[in-house]
Design a protein around this nucleic acid. Structure first.
Length: 658
RNA sequence: GCCCGAGUAGCUCAGUUGGCCAGAGCAGGCGCCUUGUAAGCGUCAGGUCGUCGGUUCGAAUCCGACCUCGGGCUCCA
């Protein structure tokens, strides 16, 4: 019997008897790996451990700790979920159940339109653990289409997947999502236990006993294939990990993220509220929230002033003709608030600022010497978001864009984009973000406007702007709007979550629709290029992201109340007032909390309100012009600090925006 | 908009199988206490139990519709 030789990822080679499987290879490498192995990657393709290896193959053993291993683990857990549900609900059918970040889900259609209760999750969880305890083998099978259709005769969604997968073409996405396997006419499926089989590309762990560190999380509705015209399925989400420790860690992180929820913090810190009488998605800003917002806006304005922008203002409503010209009524009407009828005209609340800025550009004849024109406005817009999409400040129906529109010549596009991107990153950094991820979206396949030369010019301009800024980016081919390519910038927050904030968007459409022009050096009329740029995106949303990023503990320069002075007893009240007067005089936001309550209580209140500095003043301080500074994050209070030193220190922090 | 879940005082929550005037803690008012670093004591006030309708001798509790919120889907700054 001839031996086979396979290569390992480190470049080394192993010789095994012919017919050896990936599991045999793992065992040959070592008992530890044999125990850990759950799947393999053979020549770049995920495979079960049971697959026989071909001579000359490159093989990597998959272990649970790796990304691929976790994916396999989660996918196998999803199968067990489906097995449990199908066993518990006779007549139920199932759709797709892929691994996702941190876990998995599976979509079901229960008989007679039944739905899952949260309590059902416990029942399902118990059944899943029985299946896992039974250590059932996952057994791969393959068949042609006809046979597959027969195996899944009772499962309409699986049959639909089989038909899509084998008809090729655009169904690739679905096949990926479904994990359904098949090249050409061959389809694969996996059985475990006596009565469960699922269409699947694999690979899977060898047996259910390898699973177990999972938790079912929630029930949700999800449209079949994400299409709102299709049936609504019942989706169960779960999380799964290779060890109990990882699972507990993940659940702990979720709990921590919940504590940062900006809606909770907005209420606890008295920043913002959403009175029911206003309607969904509409917030009011309380003094403390408004203070932070004002600092954000003031900083934004000062940067724009220094950055060569012209400030403009525009009304909240305009007649329908503006929105007809801009095209919003054609493309965007569903997201617009309905019109108000007045004096025979229809006035729409604005969902965007751009048409107004266009009219400013049009207000006089423009020369190439005037360009680029950069108009900036903190413009409040109103969008009729779907009720289910509204989410605190992160997605609301009324919000304020830090909106700029740049009108420039084709020749200026590249330089302009580069400086816009630098400006954007520089401002975001000032707010404590230092981890960015960008996405470049290029011309869509389908219909789009503008000549190819212009698209190339703009797309190249965006790309070189990204490169000169040194930003990591990915390319979304064909992901641009019909009217131009764009860059979106995400920031990563303190606990690693990405937030899309900025967008740089070329627009070849509005200049055409509004007939914009400027007089070139050649004396002829030319059409300017228009760039939309939102930096924070929405001030409300940006504030919400900052709130979550800092978990409510705003740095001193942003904190609504920077210092609270606590006299130890009534006799220290006068001195506390003097300290306060000095702080206010220095331009700090400070208050005094009189000695009506015990000191410990007042310290606690100030700490709960996440103040950066709590100053305690007593006999020693009155005598020596000092304060006791209990700074947020410090191990212990600092006593006998000269007031002058404290002022100097705080001023430095604020100046450095820390 | 669609699916599931939830709405009891400003906030966080109790409220047994429908049955005496709906409770607590925190926050708030008042009084006492005068305090050196994360909750001093007492007292008072505060709720048409989301709204409307239904079932019942009787509804916070059961049913329906609507409103709002939460988690998803879709969408998106």
């Amino acid at each position: 019997m001839a031996d086979i030789t396979v290569s390992l990822p480190d470049g080394s080679e192993r010789t095994l008897p012919s017919g050896a499987t990936a599991a045999d290879l793992a065992a040959d490498i070592g008992p530890g790996l044999a125990r850990d192995a759950i799947a393999a990657v053979v020549d770049g393709t995920g495979c079960d451990l049971a697959v026989p290896l071909a001579d000359g193959a490159t093989v990597e053993i998959t272990t649970p700790g790796s990304d691929r291993g976790l994916e396999t683990l989660r996918h196998s857990t999803a199968h067990v979920l489906a097995q449990a549900v199908l066993g518990l609900w006779p007549g139920a059918t199932f759709a797709i159940g892929p691994p996702i970040d941190h876990g998995f889900y599976y979509d079901f259609d229960l008989p007679d339109g039944a739905t899952f209760d949260p309590e059902d999750l416990e029942t399902i969880d118990e059944r899943m653990r029985e299946i896992i305890a039974a250590d059932q083998a996952f057994v791969r099978g393959e068949s042609d289409v006809a046979e597959a259709l027969e195996i899944f005769a009772d499962h309409a969604y699986k049959r639909e997947i089989i038909e899509k997968v084998t008809s090729g073409g655009a169904a690739g996405d679905l096949a990926d999502e479904a994990g359904a396997g098949g090249v050409g006419e061959q389809l694969s499926y996996y059985r475990n236990g006596d009565d469960f089989v699922d269409l699947c590309r694999g690979p899977h762990v060898p047996s259910t006993g390898r699973l177990g560190h999972f938790a079912l999380q929630k029930v949700a509705g999800a449209y079949w294939r994400g299409d709102e015209t299709r049936p609504m399925l019942q989706r169960i989400y779960g999380t799964a990990w290779s060890t109990g420790k990882d699972l507990r860690g993940h659940l702990h992180r979720l709990a921590e993220a919940e504590k940062r929820d900006h809606r909770r913090l907005a209420a606890e810190l008295d920043l913002v509220s959403w009175p029911e009488v206003l309607g969904p998605g509409l917030a009011v800003w309380h003094p403390r929230g408004a203070t932070v917002r004002k600092i954000i806006e003031d900083y934004s304005r000062s940067r724009h002033e220094a950055g060569g922008y012209d400030f403009v203002f525009s009304p909240h409503i305009a007649k329908s003709v503006l929105w007809e010209t801009s095209g919003h009524l054609d493309f965007y009407a569903d997201s617009m608030y309905p019109p108000m009828e007045m004096d025979g005209a229809s006035y729409y609340p604005k969902p965007m600022n751009c048409p107004f800025h266009v009219t400013v550009f049009q207000s006089s004849q423009r020369s190439y010497r005037d360009l680029p024109k950069r108009y900036f406005e903190l413009g409040a817009v109103y969008r009729y978001e779907l009720s289910g999409a509204i989410h605190g400040l992160l997605r609301s129906r009324g919000f304020t864009q830090d909106d700029a529109h740049i009108f420039c010549t084709r020749e200026q596009v590249a330089d302009e984009l580069a400086s816009l991107l630098d400006f954007t990153i520089s401002v975001l950094k000032a707010f404590g973000f230092d981890d960015f991820q960008a996405k470049l979206s290029t011309r869509p396949e389908e219909k789009s406007v503008g000549d190819q030369e212009l698209w190339d010019l703009a797309t190249d301009g965006l790309r070189s702007a990204l490169e000169s800024a040194g930003l990591a980016y990915e390319v979304d081919e064909g992901g641009g709007a019909f009217y131009g390519p764009k860059i979106d910038v995400d920031v990563t927050d303190a606990i690693g979550r990405p937030w899309q904030l900025s967008t740089l968007q070329l627009d070849f459409n509005l200049p055409e629709r509004f007939g914009l022009e400027y007089i070139g050096a050649d004396g002829a009329r030319h059409q300017p290029v228009m760039i939309h740029r939102a930096l924070m995106g929405s001030i409300e949303r940006f504030f919400g992201v900052l709130l979550e990023h800092y978990a409510g503990a705003f740095p001193a320069w942003l904190a609504p109340e920077q210092v609270r002075v606590l006299p130890v007893a009534d006799v220290h009240q006068d001195y506390a007032d003097q300290v306060l007067a000095r702080l206010v005089d220095e331009g700090f936001r400070a208050t005094v909390d009189p000695a009506d309550e015990p000191l410990g209580k007042r310290v606690r209140s100030a700490k709960t309100a996440k103040l950066p500095h709590v100053l305690v003043v007593g006999d020693d301080d009155v005598a020596n012009d000092t304060v006791g500074d209990n700074a947020r994050g410090a191990d212990k209070p600092e006593r006998d600090l000269p007031l002058d030193d404290f002022v100097e220190r705080l001023a430095a922090l604020v100046a450095e925006r820390r």
